[in-house]
Amino acid sequence: MSDGARILLGHGSGGRLYRDLVRDVFLAHFDNPVLARLDDAAALVAAGRIALTTDAHVVQPLVFAGGDIGRLAVAGTVNDLATAAARPLGLAAAFVIEEGFEMARLHEICASMAATAAEAPVAIVTGDTKVVQRGAADGLFITTTGVGEIVVDHEVAAAAAVAGDVLLLSGTLGDHALAVLAARGDFHFTLDVQSDCAPLWGLVEAALAAGGTTVHFLRDPTRGGLATVLAELAEETGLGIDVDEDALPVSAAVRSACSLLGYDPLALANEGKMVLAVAPEGAEAVLGALRGRTEGARAARIGTLVAQHPGRVALRTPYGTRRVVDMPVGELLPRIC
């Protein structure tokens, strides 16, 4: 491939250029026997119940500290499967590429997808590519669909959470959101924050192994942050939630950027974190299992599901006062006052 090669409309036409693209880029990076058959549909074998999820990824910029759209596309879908206690069996990836996109960047992003998939571990077993005219897409969009095999017999869902369950969070808040904003050049200061973007099946598998049926609920606090996950959990269960602000892990860099910009770490997106609701008798074991892994090194016990104040999340501030936590609304904006 020559330097400066770019995606042409013809790469999406299904003809020769398309075949070259599939062979030189996708097969080269995602190399696995199922994909190599180039059948229209991939055949997978599952033992029991399966989970299915899909997610469209449209991040700008495409590359940021700690990750890129490719890593995000794989990790996001693997993590959605993990919330259903599902071991990923295979991913499908659909690429919408803007005409003129540099081939070298596509290679980098596919290499990152492949590396993330290996980490998960999961194979990218089928896919599709469309090329749209310049201006019709912002560089590259990736939609990933995942199928997973549910490895537990008990229900892992909001409906399974009960009063008394302990809430665990697998690590620090806000790193992803701030890394992306910093990569956009929106801040006029340098910020030493890396996105936490990572596939979490290994972490969840360890938690399930340690906690078994005491693990009642799993959800990844992506867009809308921890605030959204907790508000939804309270609403879906009809229970109250008590959270301890002191217990929330937040890195020093994120904390100071937040106080400068007026952001609330609870509202910031994460791409490599998991919230778990665990019966009290399993909480210590699960916390230990989380902390035993790099992605969970800063895991913490952050709160409890309670019968009081149903449907509401109450945050206890370090000053002993309490306030309600709601879902954040709209765009993330710095304060101007």
Binding site: G240, Q308, H309, P310, G311, R312, A314, T321, R322, R323, V324
Partner: peptide
């Protein structure tokens, strides 16, 4: 808003 613990 402060949490009103009296009512749900």
């Amino acid at each position: 808003r402060a949490l009103d613990l009296s009512g749900g």
